[in-house]
Design a protein around this nucleic acid. Structure first.
Lengths: 335, 335
DNA sequence: CTGAAAGCGCTAACAG
DNA sequence: CTGTTAGCGCTTTCAG
């Protein structure tokens, strides 16, 4: 035991390893020395049990198909690590049976907080976790009722920006390939987009749904392209699906982007900047989202009875080559 | 307390929640009933401390840029979950300072085992973990000395298949865009590839290095394409870099793939099947790799003094449209 | 099959 | 600032 070797009490050892505990530098040094010699390292689990804080955050995710999630998770994990927390991963791949199991596991591990980046289970999850006094924070999604805190980007405003951009570029037949309607991102992005169109007296030309999946997005694109009159611009609800739409348009219909048709997406994942896609999109500020998520969650952990808050971070429109350029009203027009 | 409510001892409750413990069905039922009424759930952390088994596996990863990793991690996490283990994520983004920190955290959490899917730290990591008696398993990489168990695909054989395929397709100037030389995947794939070429008396036409990064792979492609004589086929060490190479070749040099130049990769990530890339590649059998990894790791956990084993799973050549088709020797030639 | 008792390794008051 | 004393919630001998 380290305490003996250092010639101090067990408490002294404990305190020597706690950030701001009251220990004399002398004692601390003795302890560190003894610890080093014995290869001792505090047992996080024992500490968790005694203190009631596990410093573990449960991260519930469903799938990594959409690149946005790996990117976000990497940042969340990093930020958490910087704050001396760690991520316990829970895959909730099966939307029917999984929630029950996942929640039991989550609760069993005494996680200090939960980040839910997954869909389809949050209602159940929430109630059970609140009952257990565990803070839950929604990442990249929110729920109808304002009971749950959530961090998202400003999907409505993003959708609006895209609409205005397309209208100003002179597009007349603007279509939408939607994601899954059950997701708040989809509803917000579409609402913002429609509102942007409406502001210019434009109505949506056509709509089909890809449910945020690559394959379904391909099919959704075909639906639009098979119509007697084709759209001249498509807003696809996320970049991942936009790639599918672009591929179909180019390889199956031999059309050029943006000459024949403009495509815009949402997320600005790394791939969107690749020459092959060069996609105009709205950037989700992943870094800031992750930082805010961690900041708020840690705050909730410290202060259990916080009022739920909803954070929507604004992201910029990133204009690239997949869309026709708006007719620029020269600045000289003014004078 | 559940024990009281069920009118049994604490031990009985404990046993009722353990898989194969000796409890009468009657007692178990009483306990389950009381537990349900009280919303009780065993505390995994307390259990971990008392039993010495945390049922947590540390997963050390470096980055998700290459799609292969998210795909693999998803499968690893799922498989582990099916076995009642969970994944504690450790990002080792900073290769200098991180290892020390990561290892301390890892050891502090009393993980039962470690899966290292990351590079650059395994030497240090290994020794310390072995000292602590924690099994370490390398995923998608191995080390020179045979001290460490590892699960990979058969990278040598995969490289060889690609070489033979390109030679048979009639390519004369075959180049290689390499990944990071410090990675065993790179060394094995290249060795297999060279051996495949050699078997047909062919030597490598040119080589440049992309270090497994998209940006560097673009530059590596430019190096090859700027040469006075260009290659007519390129083996890129992974799909992720192959996308970069294809993009450069098409968008900066206006060449067609595969008419002007064939491209082949390695991994078969989901994107490789997208029409836009349609990449010929060697599939890493991610599912089987994840299953083997978990199987072996759990075995190591149960049986601490196992001899290290190295598993290399064979993956098929997936022929798609990014490469010229080999001249088929008609089956009728035989007779 | 079951209960009693003794910890797992640490933190958290509480005196001093 | 430091040591003492209790546990955190479970598993585990060991009797019975």
């Amino acid at each position: 035991m380290v305490a003996e070797r250092a010639g101090v009490s067990q408490s002294a050892v404990s305190r020597a390893f706690q950030p701001g505990a009251s220990v004399s530098e002398k004692t601390a040094r003795k302890v560190r020395k003894a610890a080093a010699e014995l290869g001792y390292r505090p047992n996080t689990l024992a500490r968790a049990m005694a203190s009631g804080k596990s410093r573990i955050v449960g991260l519930v995710v469903a799938y990594f198909e959409n690149q946005f999630y790996p990117e976000a998770i990497e940042k969340l994990a990093n930020t958490l690590q910087e704050n001396n927390y760690h991520v316990l991963m829970f895959m909730s791949w099966d939307e029917t049976e999984a929630p029950e199991t996942v929640i039991n596991d989550l609760l069993g591990y005494q996680v200090d907080g939960i980040i839910a980046a997954s869909v389809g289970m949050t209602d159940v999850l929430t109630r059970r976790c609140e009952a257990a006094g565990i803070p839950v924070l929604l990442f990249n999604r929110h729920q109808g009722d304002d009971k749950l805190s959530a961090v998202t980007s400003d999907n409505f405003s993003g959708g609006r920006k895209l609409a205005e951009f397309l209208v100003q570029a002179g597009h007349k037949r603007i279509a939408h390939v939607a994601g899954w309607d059950g997701a708040s991102t989809q509803r917000d992005r579409e609402a913002g987009f429609l509102s942007g169109l409406a502001a210019h007296g434009v109505t949506l030309f056509a709509r089909s749904c890809g449910n945020y999946h690559y394959d379904q997005a391909q099919e959704a694109a075909r639906v639009l392209m098979r119509a007697p009159v084709r759209p001249d611009a498509i807003f696809v609800s996320n970049d991942h699906m936009a790639f599918a739409v672009m591929d179909v348009i180019r390889s199956e219909y031999n059309l050029r982007i943006p000459e024949d048709i403009s495509i815009v997406g949402f997320d600005d994942v790394a791939m969107s900047a690749w020459p092959c896609f060069d996609l105009t999109t709205v950037r989700q500020p992943t870094n800031r989202m992750a930082e805010e998520t961690v900041r708020i969650l840690l705050q909730m952990i410290e202060n259990k009875d916080m009022v739920p808050c909803r954070t929507a971070l604004d992201g910029p429109l990133i204009i690239r080559g997949s869309s026709r350029i708006p007719v620029t009203t020269s600045a000289n027009d003014v004078g």
